[in-house]
C-alpha cells in the first residue's frame, strides 16, 4: 500500500494544563478531500497548527511525503508544498489583494513579473479578480476568507489545510467556492478541510475524521460517521446538532 501524502501519528499538544489534542491520528491522500470535523474547542485548529509547524507537538509524529517532518518550521514545510489558511484570517492588511497573493506566488517564482502573473490567475480562480487593487483591510469577512485561500494556492501546494474557509459565507458564496475546492482535489492536491458546514462536508469529502475533546472519536465515509452515535452525541452535547442540515449546498 502507498503511504498517503500526509499522515499524522498520535499527535498530542498541551497548552499548560489543557490537553488540547490527545493522541490524534489522521491521514490524507493526494487527489482527495479529507474533512476534519468536531465541536468548537475540540482541538482542530491546534492540530492544524502542529501539522503546519506553528506548534511543536508534545508527542507524536507528522509524516509528509514519506518523511518525518515533525517540528520543522512553517516556512520549510511551506517549501515542501504544505499550505494552510487561518481560521482567524491574517491578511497583510496594508497591502492590496494583488500584493497579498504575490507574497505566496513568490515562493515558487522569484521574478516579480512571473509571480504577479501567477497571483492574477489565482485571484481569478477564486473569484477575487475584480478586487485585485483593493487594500486588504477594506475587505469583507467573506472576501478575506477567499484571500486566505488564494494566498495558499499561490504557493502551488501539494497539501492544502483549510481551516473553516466556508464559515461566514452565505449560501451563494459557498456555492461559488465549493467547486473551486473540488477542482483542486481533481488536480491531484491533498485537501484537508476543517468545516462546520455539514452539507459541504457530506458532498465534498471522501473521508471524514471526527475530533472531540482532542481525540479522534470516529472516522470513515461521511455517511458512516454521521450515523455514528458517538459523533451525534459529541455534537448534541455541545448543542451543535442543529447545524447539521442547516445549510443547503450543492
Amino acid at each position: 500500500m502507498v503511504e498517503p501524502l500526509l499522515s499524522v501519528e498520535g499527535i498530542s499538544h498541551r497548552f499548560g494544563g489543557l490537553l488540547a489534542v490527545d493522541a490524534a491520528s489522521l491521514w490524507a491522500p493526494a487527489g482527495s478531500i479529507t474533512s476534519l470535523i468536531g465541536p468548537n474547542g475540540a482541538g482542530k485548529t491546534t492540530l492544524f497548527a502542529v501539522i503546519s509547524g506553528f506548534l511543536k507537538p508534545t508527542a507524536g509524529r507528522v509524516r509528509y511525503g514519506g518523511e518525518d517532518v515533525t517540528g520543522e518550521p512553517p516556512h520549510r514545510l511551506a517549501r515542501r508544498g504544505m499550505a494552510r489558511t487561518f481560521q482567524i484570517t491574517k491578511p497583510f492588511a496594508g497591502l492590496s489583494v494583488r500584493d497579498n497573493i504575490l507574497i505566496g506566488a513568490h515562493l515558487r517564482h522569484p521574478a516579480r513579473a512571473d509571480a504577479l502573473a501567477v497571483a492574477e490567475t489565482v485571484a481569478r480562480d477564486v473569484g477575487l479578480g475584480e478586487l485585485l487593487d483593493r487594500p486588504a483591510h477594506t475587505m469583507t469577512a467573506a472576501a478575506r476568507k477567499r484571500l486566505e485561500l488564494a494566498r495558499a494556492l499561490a504557493t502551488e501546494p501539494k497539501l492544502l489545510l483549510l481551516d473553516e474557509v466556508l464559515a461566514g459565507l452565505n449560501p451563494s458564496e459557498i456555492r461559488e467556492v465549493v467547486p473551486v475546492i473540488r477542482a483542486l482535489a481533481g488536480r491531484g492536491l491533498a485537501v484537508v478541510m476543517i468545516e462546520h458546514v455539514m452539507q459541504a462536508v457530506m458532498s465534498l469529502s471522501a473521508h471524514v475524521f471526527v475530533l472531540a475533546e482532542g481525540r479522534i472519536i470516529a472516522e470513515g465515509s461521511p455517511a458512516h460517521v454521521t450515523a455514528d452515535p458517538a459523533v451525534v452525541e459529541a455534537y448534541l452535547g455541545h448543542g451543535a446538532a442543529a447545524k447539521v442540515g442547516a445549510h443547503d449546498v450543492h
Binding site: A78, K90, A93, L95, I103, H106, L107, R112, A115, A154
Partner: peptide, 26 residues
Amino acid sequence: ERSRFGAWLIAVRENEDAAMALGVDA
C-alpha cells in the same frame, strides 16, 4: 520594493505568521 526579498520583508512587517505560512523564513 521590486524584489522578492523586499516583498517578503514587507510581508513579515504586515503579519509574521501569515508570512511564515507562505514559506517566508522570517
